[in-house]
């Protein structure tokens, strides 16, 4: 294309760093990751940036482009014609080097979520209408951009109190699974910290997979938690009828 792009890339490590400017020859359809790879191959071989598939399937290359959390492989350079494109690492996670951050906290949280607990072993009888609802959550590629933008984790140091949007989606995926027999509401109300979310929807805005995190996962979960822990009428009715809280079906468990 002849034109040249200007990038300002944050370089540094936990002790500090600064933005370094690079110039990259433009090409049709170029994405930010293409530009960074050009820099890496020709100007700064030790520029640290995480990427795997370069097709928006794996969710490795999350970073902040001009202040917005984005996948580098899906952000087109021609969206920023005439601007210097600033690329910074995700701010919520500790820096390792350059654009690479330490996201291990997320993997710790993942372990806290109990796995699917089917009421009977597969093959499951399940209609598409029921599958569709949870399949939306299965689209998640774990890029952690939602975790990055979530102000509870970003500004309020909420890592001890809230699992973050990614894991609300994960819990919703099990909680709304038609065959799951486990009761996940106590986890949500307590350790997972669903109440810390104040439904401000930044996670939905940044999600590259267009999962409607707040509307379809978090709010329905909040409503379920309200059924159990906040709704005085429901609580009273449960007391009177002596029914235990939890899924209505009796799980007939069998492990495989």
């Amino acid at each position: 294309m002849g034109e040249e792009f200007r990038l300002s890339v944050w370089r540094g490590d936990p002790s500090g760093g600064q933005e370094v400017e690079y110039r990259v020859p433009g090409e049709t359809g170029m994405v930010v990751l293409d530009a960074l790879q050009y820099i890496q191959h020709n100007q700064a071989p030790d520029l640290a940036v995480r990427w795997n598939c370069k097709a928006a399937h794996c969710g490795s290359c999350g970073a902040e482009v001009n202040g917005q959390p984005k996948l580098l492989c899906k952000t087109r350079m021609d969206d920023y014609v005439g601007e210097t494109v600033s690329v910074k690492p995700m701010q919520t996670f500790p820096i390792i080097k350059d654009l690479v951050t330490d996201v291990s906290w997320n993997y710790q949280v993942a372990k806290e979520i109990p796995p699917l607990d089917p009421m009977y072993p597969a093959p499951f009888q399940m209609q598409q209408v029921d599958a569709t609802r949870v399949q939306e959550f299965h689209r998640c590629i774990e890029c952690f951009l939602c975790q990055d933008t979530c102000h509870v984790l970003r500004n309020h140091e909420g890592q001890q109190q809230y699992f973050g949007p990614r894991f609300m989606v994960k819990i919703a995926e099990y909680e709304m699974h038609p065959i799951d027999g486990a009761d996940r509401l106590p986890l949500l109300a307590d350790q997972a910290g669903l109440g810390m979310c104040n439904v401000t929807k930044c996670c939905t805005e940044v999600c590259p997979q267009h999962i409607r995190i707040t509307d379809n996962a978090i709010i329905p979960l909040k409503e379920r938690v309200a059924d159990r822990y906040y709704d005085p009428v429901k609580i009273l009715l449960r007391r009177l009828s002596g029914k235990k809280a939890g899924p209505t079906q009796t799980p007939s468990r069998s492990s495989t």
Binding site: L116, P121, M126, Q128, Q135, T256
Partner: peptide, 20 residues
């Protein structure tokens, strides 16, 4: 494949409710 279903994978379904 059925093992996967047990572990949480949700495949597309046939009208009979089986794996598409």
């Amino acid at each position: 494949v059925l093992e996967l279903e047990n572990w949480g994978a949700v495949f597309d379904r046939t009208p009979e409710g089986r794996i598409m």
